[in-house]
Design a protein around this nucleic acid. Structure first.
Lengths: 238, 238
DNA sequence: CGGGCACTTGATAGTAATCAAGTCCGGTGG
DNA sequence: CCACCGGACTTGATTACTATCAAGTGCCCG
């Protein structure tokens, strides 16, 4: 399923440099970190870890995209995060050993760097700057969840969709010459619905409403063009 | 509005001991921390900091309860957290200087310990164990938000209410001899509604349904008795 | 060219928001 | 001690929105 090998990145541009949490380290310090890293590759659609399994590693995404979800009682996926290059996962188990609370599945072919919990704890105690970066990143995730959570009331469907589109715009958007932005969607309609707590029909209907309003457009089903970022931001009104 | 004085806690049981993030420090180290702390008192209903204001301190709650909320465009409070003794707030500004993204208002007379951002950064670099505790706490908040966020779909009203009741049960419940639990509610009906994204009427109706079903009971409006914890947990089904 | 899957579109029903009266309770003043 | 007042809470009626159920449509890939 996965291909395990030690880190083979060129030493002048090691994989760990891509990861913001090591940004403050010197090259020498980084070399030490790299020596603790194992690299793994996962093909599209494979599971990095599964809900309920013991989780003993911190994973740093080198290349690719991963969706993180929980399976609800009714069998539905509740997608919590869509992570990509530079993001980490498994941090909930850095300090305490406990089973994974969600499943991580690759959305495309993905390469990750793996550090064991023991090694990671050593690193955190030796290089406090890493902790600060992790705190920073956790704060960002809290920001995101708090923002979405502030809009959970059943009537705020548009806000949820627009916040999701803006998130994708920031992470996966490519600015075009004419100021529009093309987004390479990481999720299909159903997954988007599972991400923001709606049904795929509702997502589909709303997106088409926006299309008719001239705010967005589609290129096939997997790409989306933002024609009017301002209106989108206004829809999130805050 | 607030009463400022240096920390006057007895040295054998300093206020900072109440705060989990300093739990791993030795007495000597703690004494250093305490020397950096300023203590403040706020009467019920006063604001510790306000949305948009510069926020330069970390606050540790010594005694009391604080609600943290954002004001939506329509003027409604979106309550994000209800914090009490041992919790901290202001951590989002530990690393970067940016205005507060929400307002913190005391729900009762409250005492807090205050540390400036500069001092706090020094502490984090000197005592990496504090960072680990903070990471731990942020992880817990993420756990909570992820759990609630997993239940945002419009039809899961009961889950939201039950999760809120279970949260209050854990934080503010007092077990009685007959296995029931009395909860000293930190929020009124409207605030509860703002906490979980519903209207006060809906909260009111649902709580009364639970009462008729024999799951809960009221003592006045500010106290609530959980008669059947199991059924409540099942309603959250996960 | 055909099959299957993702997506769209339509009709219906259920649920919470909204609007609108009440009711209860605590506090105040006579 | 009781009557009154106001705010919080409850209850009821209606409306609006999204889930659900059910067909379609279109696209991608063999």
């Amino acid at each position: 399923m996965s291909n395990q090998l030690s880190c083979t990145c060129p030493s002048e541009q090691p994989c760990a440099r891509k990861v913001p949490i090591f940004a403050a380290l010197t090259d020498a310090e980084l070399a030490q970190v790299v020596s603790l890293i194992t690299q793994k590759s996962y093909p599209k659609g494979s599971l990095v870890f599964r809900e309920g399994e013991p989780l003993e590693n911190l994973y740093l995404i080198n290349h690719g995209r991963i969706k993180v979800y929980r399976t609800a009682a009714d069998g539905k996926e509740q997608i919590l995060y869509v992570l990509s290059e530079g993001d980490f996962l498994g941090e909930r188990n850095l300090l305490r050993s406990k089973p994974a609370e969600y499943t991580a599945e690759t959305l495309e072919d993905t390469q990750v760097c793996v550090i064991t919990r023991q090694d990671c704890q050593q690193l955190l105690l030796r290089y406090p700057s890493i902790s600060l970066k992790i705190i920073d990143e956790l704060n960002k995730r809290l920001d995101k969840l708090e923002l979405l959570f502030g809009n959970v009331s059943p009537r705020e469907t548009d806000k949820r969709i627009c916040l999701m589109l803006l998130e994708f715009l920031e992470k996966y958007g490519t600015k075009q010459a004419d100021q529009t932005v093309i987004i390479d969607l990481p999720l299909n309609r159903e997954e988007m619905a599972n991400y923001i707590g709606l049904t795929r029909e509702t997502v589909s209907r709303r997106l088409n409403t926006y299309k008719e309003a001239g705010i967005i457009d589609f290129i096939g089903n997997k790409k989306l063009v933002i024609l009017d970022v301002e209106t989108l931001k206004e829809a999130c009104q805050y």
